[in-house]
Structure formats: structure tokens, C-alpha cells
Design a protein around this nucleic acid. Structure first.
Length: 874
RNA sequence: GGGCUGUUAGCUCAGUUGGUUUAGAGCGCUGCCUUGACAGGGCAGAGGUCGUGGGUUCGAAUCCCUCACAGCCCACCA
């Protein structure tokens, strides 16, 4: 059978994915005889489509899961999606708008019906896309954060936290999105620099003809002023103590207060205080017991409380009022000014700090264990540099606003009695019971009004590692007991606080245990120029097209080649090409093997040596790879595997054992090579699952159950390091000879004779056949005297001669030798300096001194040889 | 403003409690090769005074300090 010289992923990937699924290799159930290995997927948005970030993230998870599976652990990777309330609701609203339907015209039930329809239609596309990547998730366990059991769990937790006093309802300054008409979390606010003006406005001091000037960027808010504030240490304003000022245009009287919060250097040193519309003013307001005058409607227009410009938008009012202030002589000046303004992450509207009644989770008591577990490495972050970030955040954490003015999500299970009292319960029936217990008159279900808001999405995602195993509703079930705590979590640093921290908090609160042992934080996928990939820039490739073009294996390895933990991945198509080329290289190595005719003939000496060497190298690299995995250095583990296969196996080993053209190969070598090849594709399988599985079935006949995906990971065993060292030296000699051929323009087909002047005759005898084969030598002759009329070179203390026809370029050769001599002398000088330092000799460990002595002896021997060689040229 | 990372070859990064490192890898680059597994390939080669200035040490890419530059997180001065 003639195989194509190019590996064709399209012919094999779908086939094997289906086969693995049919055989149930991805599925997991609790098995007391095996140690579990569990990963829960960071649930992508249900309406999302696969982007490069998902590709990287899920490739890493799949690598970890596949390796664990081969190591004989009960591997379970739980997939699922997140309802993503804000993002999904925004998409549904936009979809309805396209159809000419206004959300406001719909009832909650009707809207949710549309949202579900949309979700059923488009939701979970992303999971299908993950299959193309090769993700070995247990699809029978697929969860959605709005599934019935997950929703019930969320509600149960809300009620529980409320009853424990961790959840409260309060009036707080929140980030109000006047366009989305919802409060959003602090972390959903993006601060941007905006060019605006700093208006200097004068206020008349009541009962006098004097004025005081303040500075503000938001003149429209003067209508909500309830005080002016100066620094008590400010000499300029001592006369204002106890006085009052009049708000321009409306002449409302407000007091002067003093607070050290005011920066005397900034503006005029006098601050207007608007507690309802500025977070700092709000705090001043509380401290000084000021009135709070909210002059804005939810949509950002002014209300009647301001007294002017009622019903007009805040930005229009800003223009109009500054004009009016100017006309009426209140505006002293307006200077250009750049300041930072908060924008909504979702709608890009300017955030309005606004007083509003919201639900909060108090972090005081919950945060401690979540902080200490990370600081004490009970939960390990990879790379550990994120520990500091995590601590900084946890130590400054604010109470978490969890109510969102949306419909798509988990509705808050709080019920209002007609008199305004609140009960919190898992069902309306229970709420009624609780309500009747506190109500003076008997109530009916219809008398209770449930809170309209839903919970922040992260409230439910925080429970994900527990709820996917139903650990809230049935806290003692077999799954949760077996799989929890999970092992590794792979996610982006951007959601370390949103999500990871909350899972940790919930884990300790509801399982009294951490949710995972390790958190691997990936970087951001950027383009070559370092720009974040985004739709608007159009710099993100389509992952599915990439898979089509380069194969899933190629894309997987391409992504991993350049992405150490925590580092951003600068995506370049070259990487994926490299991945594809690697597939091809392995494919062709296999083509070579399967093309051989095997005969029962004696094994060449060089082959035996090569086999022993490669086995030792395999063990050496396996050790290296295990070390990398243990430190979550996935890229390094891949690179080690890549080099082992490409350099050691293909470039050196196969070139040694490859029989001459149309000659058969001996059986022993062939069998050994197949065995090694099997080991190689085993360690490659987590990275390149498809091609390795295909090869696994091509190199030997196998039973239907005998698949690489469930093959046993290679065992570590001791290896002969000396053999590796000696072979490496032999290879160096081969390279040197090839280099001479190169520079002297000698064909690789011409067999040469090599003369060696050495004290170490044994090595050359041992490696004679191997070196001879690789460097195309007729023979290696050991000699005592130099050879005239030959090209010579030096490696270590050994001198080599290759007789050639015609002239030898003595000048050039001298140059080379002198260059090397100079370098070696410099090197020796450094070593000698060190050794002649008495304090070094008396302080350094013996081992280190021995090494230095060896370096000295080697360098001296080499110099001697070089000098002799040079002398011979004169 | 507060906190935290980085800065090693053209690019992306290793360099593991300071000592076989006058420093390694992958990619890229240069030269040669229409070799019988593979041109998506082979062979060979050239690239770095480890950001700056000081200090500790017998010994520093590695530890300490200064500065410069880059990046991240948090808070946001009206």
C-alpha cells in the first residue's frame, strides 16, 4: 500500500473522534479502584462561538486529561455552558429588535420563552466545535447553568447565605448603566481617559456679597449639591466656617463642611458635594450626615428634584447649564481637562454612580479561608506570580453586588409582603409559609411579589465545581464524594477574581474543602503585533478553518509551542504550520518503517548501539517531560517531545538503522524500532491525539479495544547516562566531519578515511561502525603520529585527520585552529584564575573544585593538541 | 496614587535553592543539497559583553539597592 507523502488529517480525525465516543473512552463513573482525575470546563457562554482563547484553554485541558487517562486514573472532564445573563440577554434583545419586537412590550414570561428558543437553537454550538479540536470531555455529563438542578442549587445557596446573614439588601452606591438599565459590578466598569472640561463655578456665600469658587467636571450635578467642602487646614477658607452657600441658578442654601479628604492643591481647594452622584461625595455625605439629592432618572435624564431641565439627558444638560452659568455670571472659567470616566463593559454607556437598593454578599467572613488557602499553597496558582495579585484583591475586597436588573438568569428568591416586609425562600409556597408566620393577616400566594431581579452570573458559576456533581441538592452523592475536590482548573487570569475566587469561597462554604488543587492561568491570545484578538480588529483567525487547513493536531501543537503558563500567546500562522509540519514528519517516519522488508538476518553492530542509546535517551527525556508536567510547563513538555522525535529519533536514530536502498532490515532492529515508536507516540498522544491514534493502529494489528487513548503511559526506569554522553560525543564528531565536507565541497557520497590520534582508543572502537555509517567513512584508523597532507581538526584532546585529494588550504586551517586556541586559552585563564584564588579553594565545595580542575586539565590537553597541530602546519 | 511582574540571540522563551554556563532551545536567517521516508525535507553555519549603574560573594544571568523601559492588577482627585 502506497501512502501519501503528506499526512491528511481530514481522513482520520472525524473517524477516531467518533470511535472514541462509541467506545465510551471519554465517559467516567466513580471507580474506587482508581484515583480520580477531574477537570471542570470553564463554561463558555451558551451563545458563544469558539475563538482562539478557547482553543488554547481547551487544548491544555485536553492534554492534562488525556495524560491522566493514560496514567490509569479515572479521568473525568465535565463540559457545559454558562447562561451569561447580561451577554445573552443583550443578544436576545438585539435579535428581537431586528424582528421589530421591543423588549419592553413583552412580559417576563414571553421574553424568557424567546430567550430559551434562542438558546436551544444557538446554544451549545461551541461544544460541538470543541469536538473538532479533539476535546475528550464526558459529554454525558454536559451541564448548563440554567438546568433545573443547577438552578435549584443556586436558589438553595442564596437562601442559605441569606439565613446565615451573608446576604443583605441595602442602599448602596452602585455603577448604574443608564442604557442597559441595570447595576453592574465594579469589575464590569472600564475606565477610559476622556477629554472634557474643568468648570470653575462661583457660589455666593449666603448673606454676603462674597463668592467662593469650586471646580467640577460635571456642572449639571450642581442641582444635586448638598454641601461645599474645604480642607480644615486650608488657610484660605477659614472664614467660611459655619457659613452657608447658595447653589447657583436655584439659590438653594447648602452648608460648608470641612474634611481632610479635600486636596488643597487641586482646582480651587473647594469641593462641591453631591452625595447621590459621586462615590466619594457619597462617603462624605454619610460622614457629615448630609442630605442626598438624587436628580437623575434611571435612563440618565434629569428629574424634578433638580428643579431645572427636567426630562433632559445629562450630557445635553451639561452643555446647556454651562452656557446658562456663563450667561448669568457664575462661570469663572472652563479649562480643558482630561479625566478618567467609567464605561459599561457591555453597553459602553457612561456609568452613573447611583444610589439604589440592591442585594449584596458580605465578604467579611467568607474571604478569609479563600485567601489563606491560596497564600499557603493549599490551592496552587500557576504561575505563582498571580498569588500577589490575588492577595491584593482579596485584602481589599468589597461587598459583592449580586442583583442584576435583567430577566435571563436565576431570579432572586425574595418575596415582598404587601407591607414591604421581605421573606426569602426556595419556593413561593415556602415563602407564603414564612410570610404568614410574620404577617398579622393571613396571606395568599398572590399577595406576595417576587423580586424582579436576577442574580449576577458569577453567583451561579461560582458553584460550578459543586453543582455539576449535584453536590448542593444531594451533598452526599457518589459523584461529588468521588470527584470533588477536582484537580486542575485551566482559565484566564482576567477572571481570577470574578470566578476563581468565588469558586474557592463557595467550595469552602459548601464542601468545607477547596474546589481544585491547581489553577493554571493561560495568557491572552494576541496577534503578531501583540494586539488582543477582537472582532472589531478582525485579527482573529477562524479556529475551525485552521483545523480544516492544518489539522486539529497541528493547531493544538501550534498553540502550545509558544505559550508558557501566564504568558500571552503571540499567535502567528507559522506556529500552526510548524505543528502541521511536525505531523507530516512523524507520518513520514512511519512510512519509512512500514516500507521495510524484514528478514531474519544478523543485527548490525551500529544498530544495537543505536537502540540502546535511543532507549536511554527516551528515559532521559521522559524524566524531563514528567518534570515539566509536574510544574505545569506544558509548552516545555511538548518541546521536549518534539525534539526527541524529530532530532533523536528521525535525524539520528533512523539514519543509523535505515538499511541501504532496497535492502531488508534485520528483525531485531525492526521489532525494537516499532516498540520505541509506540512509546514515542504514547507520550505524544496528549498533544496530538488523532495522528498518534491512527499510527497506533497502523503499526500493529490490534483488538478493537486496544486504543492509544487508553494505552498505558510509559514507566520510568533507570538509564545509562554514560552511554548518552559518549554517543553525543560521537555525534559531534559526525557533525564535524560533515562540516568539513561542507566547507571543502566534498560530496556526502564519497567515502572517506578518518585517522584519529587519541588516548581514548576504546570509544572509537566502540563507535566505529556508528560513526562510519553516519559520516560515510570507509574506516576509522587509530594512529600515533600526525598524517601529512590531510585536513586536520581537533575535538577535546583528540586530533583528527582526513586525507583529501589536492591542496589543503593551510592558511584557512591555521586560522581556524588559532581561533579555537585563543578561545580555549581565554577559557583556561578564567579557570586558572579561579583555582589560584586561595579563598575559592578553601571555601568552595570539593565537588565544584574537582569540576574546575577537570576543566583545567581538559583545556590544557586541548591547548596542547591545538599547539601541536598548529606546529605541524608550519 | 497603591501593589505586582518582567527586561537573556532578529522573534518567542528556558536557564530549576549563586558553582561542569566566557550562556541554551524553538522559530527565523545564511550557505550547500532535485540523496531512495519527508523540500511541509536534509546537512552545516552565523547570531548574545544576560536593560543601566552600583553592592554582597572566592564566584552573579541568578541575591540586594539605584535608575530606565515595558506590561499587569487595584483605586480613581472633584
Amino acid at each position: 500500500m502506497a501512502l501519501s507523502t503528506k499526512y491528511n488529517p481530514r481522513e482520520v480525525e472525524g473517524k477516531w473522534y467518533q470511535y472514541w465516543q462509541e467506545k465510551g473512552f471519554f465517559n467516567s463513573k466513580p471507580n474506587p479502584d482508581k484515583k480520580p482525575y477531574t477537570i471542570v470546563i470553564p463554561p463558555p457562554n451558551v451563545t458563544g462561538v469558539l475563538h482562539m482563547g478557547h482553543m488554547l484553554n481547551n487544548t491544555i485541558q485536553d492534554v492534562l486529561v488525556r495524560k491522566a487517562r493514560m496514567e490509569g486514573r479515572e479521568a473525568c472532564w465535565v463540559p457545559g455552558t454558562d447562561h451569561a445573563s447580561i451577554a445573552t440577554e443583550a443578544k436576545v434583545v438585539a435579535m428581537l429588535k431586528d424582528k421589530g419586537i421591543d423588549k419592553k412590550s413583552l412580559s417576563r414570561e414571553d421574553f424568557l420563552a424567546h430567550a430559551w428558543e434562542w438558546t436551544d437553537k444557538y446554544g451549545g454550538i461551541i461544544l460541538e466545535q470543541l469536538k473538532k479540536l479533539g476535546a475528550s470531555c464526558d459529554w454525558n455529563r454536559t451541564k448548563f447553568t440554567l438546568d433545573e438542578d443547577l438552578s435549584k442549587s443556586v436558589i438553595k445557596v442564596f437562601v442559605d447565605l441569606y439565613e446565615k446573614g451573608h446576604i443583605y439588601r441595602g442602599v448602596r452606591m452602585v455603577n448604574w448603566d443608564p442604557q442597559g438599565l441595570t447595576a453592574i459590578a465594579d469589575d464590569e466598569v472600564i475606565h477610559k481617559e476622556v477629554n472634557g472640561k474643568l468648570y470653575h463655578i462661583r457660589y455666593q456665600i449666603e448673606g454676603t456679597e462674597d463668592y467662593v469658587t469650586i471646580a467640577t467636571t460635571r456642572p449639571e450635578t450642581i442641582l444635586g449639591d448638598t454641601a461645599l467642602c474645604v480642607n480644615p487646614n486650608d488657610a484660605r477658607y477659614q472664614h467660611l466656617k459655619g457659613k452657608k452657600a447658595l447653589v447657583p441658578l436655584i439659590n438653594r442654601s447648602i452648608p460648608f463642611i470641612e474634611d481632610e479628604y479635600v486636596d488643597m492643591e487641586f482646582g480651587t481647594g473647594c469641593l462641591k458635594v453631591t452625595p447621590a452622584h459621586d462615590i466619594n461625595d457619597y462617603q462624605l455625605g454619610i460622614k457629615h450626615k448630609l442630605d442626598s439629592l438624587d436628580i437623575l432618572n434611571d435612563d440618565g435624564t434629569l428629574n424634578e428634584r433638580g428643579g431645572l431641565y427636567i426630562g433632559e439627558d445629562r450630557f445635553i444638560v451639561r452643555k446647556k447649564i454651562s452656557k446658562q452659568l456663563e450667561t448669568e455670571g457664575y462661570l469663572v472659567k472652563a479649562e480643558d481637562y482630561t479625566n478618567k470616566v467609567g464605561f459599561s463593559e457591555r453597553t459602553d454607556a457612561v456609568i452613573e454612580p447611583k444610589l439604589s437598593t440592591q442585594w449584596f454578599v458580605s465578604m467579611d467572613k467568607l474571604k478569609d479561608k479563600a485567601l489563606s488557602s491560596v497564600m499557603e499553597d493549599d490551592i496552587k496558582l500557576h504561575p505563582p506570580k498571580f498569588k500577589n495579585m490575588y492577595r491584593n484583591w482579596m485584602e481589599n475586597i468589597h461587598d459583592w453586588c449580586i442583583s442584576r436588573q435583567l430577566w435571563w438568569g436565576h431570579r432572586i428568591p425574595a418575596y415582598y409582603l404587601p407591607n414591604g416586609e421581605i421573606v426569602v425562600a426556595e419556593t413561593p409556597e415556602e415563602a407564603l409559609k414564612k410570610a404568614n408566620a410574620i404577617s398579622k393577616q393571613p396571606l395568599k400566594v398572590e399577595d406576595l411579589k417576587q423580586d424582579e431581579d436576577v442574580l449576577d452570573t458569577w453567583f451561579s458559576s461560582g458553584l460550578w465545581p459543586i453543582t455539576v456533581f449535584n453536590g448542593i441538592l444531594e451533598p452526599d452523592n457518589e459523584d461529588i464524594n468521588y470527584y470533588y475536590p477536582t484537580n486542575d482548573l485551566v482559565t484566564a487570569p482576567e477572571i481570577l477574581f470574578f470566578w476563581v475566587a468565588r469558586m474557592i469561597i463557595d467550595g469552602y462554604e459548601y464542601r468545607q474543602e477547596k474546589p481544585f488543587e491547581n489553577v493554571y492561568l493561560t495568557g491572552i491570545v494576541r496577534d503578531k503585533q501583540g494586539r488582543k484578538m477582537s472582532k472589531s480588529l478582525g485579527n482573529s483567525p477562524d479556529p475551525l478553518k485552521l483545523i480544516e487547513q492544518f489539522g486539529a493536531d497541528g493547531v493544538r501543537t501550534g498553540m502550545l509551542f509558544s505559550s508558557p503558563a501566564g504568558n500571552d500567546l503571540l499567535y502567528d500562522e507559522k506556529l500552526v504550520e510548524q505543528g502541521r509540519n511536525f505531523s507530516n514528519k512523524i507520518w513520514n517516519a512511519f512510512r519509512l518503517l512500514q516500507g521495510w522488508e524484514v528478514q531474519d538476518i544478523p543485527t548490525p553492530e551500529a544498530n544495537t548501539l543505536a537502540i540502546d542509546w535511543l532507549k536511554a535517551r527516551f528515559q532521559q527525556v521522559l524524566e524531563e517531560i514528567e518534570d515539566h508536567y509536574s510544574k505545569f510547563r506544558i509548552s516545555d513538555a511538548l518541546l521536549s517531545t518534539y525534539k526527541l522525535i524529530w532530532n533523536d529519533f528521525c535525524s539520528w536514530y533512523l539514519e543509523i538503522i535505515k538499511p541501504d536502498y532496497q535492502q531488508p532490515i534485520d528483525k531485531a532492529t525492526y521489532e525494537a524500532t516499532l516498540s520505541i515508536f509506540e512509546e514515542l507516540i504514547k507520550i505524544l498522544h496528549p498533544f496530538m491525539p488523532f495522528i498518534t491514534e491512527e499510527l497506533w493502529h497502523n503499526i500493529r494489528e490490534r483488538s478493537p479495544e486496544d486504543c492509544l487513548i487508553v494505552a498505558a503511559w510509559p514507566e520510568k526506569s533507570p538509564y545509562d547516562a554514560e552511554l548518552i554522553k559518549a554517543t553525543t560525543q560521537a555525534f559531534e564528531l559526525v557533525s564535524a566531519i560533515r562540516n568539513i565536507r561542507n566547507t571543502k565541497q566534498m560530496s556526502p557520497k564519497t567515502a572517506l578515511t578518518l585517522f584519529v590520534k587519541t588516548k581514548d582508543r576504546q570509544t572509537y572502537t566502540k563507535f566505529e561502525k556508528l560513526i562510519g555509517r553516519l559520516a560515510n567513512l570507509e574506516k576509522i584508523a587509530l594512529i600515533e603520529e600526525k598524517v601529512e597532507g590531510a585536513i586536520s581538526f581537533v575535538i577535546g584532546a583528540d586530533e583528527f585527520f582526513i586525507p583529501v585529494e589536492g591542496e589543503v588550504d593551510v592558511v584557512k586551517e591555521k586560522e581556524n585552529l588559532e581561533k579555537e586556541l585563543q578561545y580555549t586559552r581565554g577559557f583556561l585563564k578564567g579557570v586558572v584564575k579561579k583555582l589560584s584564588n586561595e579563598r575559592f579553594v578553601s571555601n568552595a565545595p570539593e565537588q565544584v573544585i574537582a569540576i574546575e580542575r577537570k576543566k583545567q586539565a581538559d583545556a590544557e590537553a586541548k591547548i596542547k593538541t591545538l599547539e601541536e597541530s598548529l606546529a605541524g602546519l608550519n
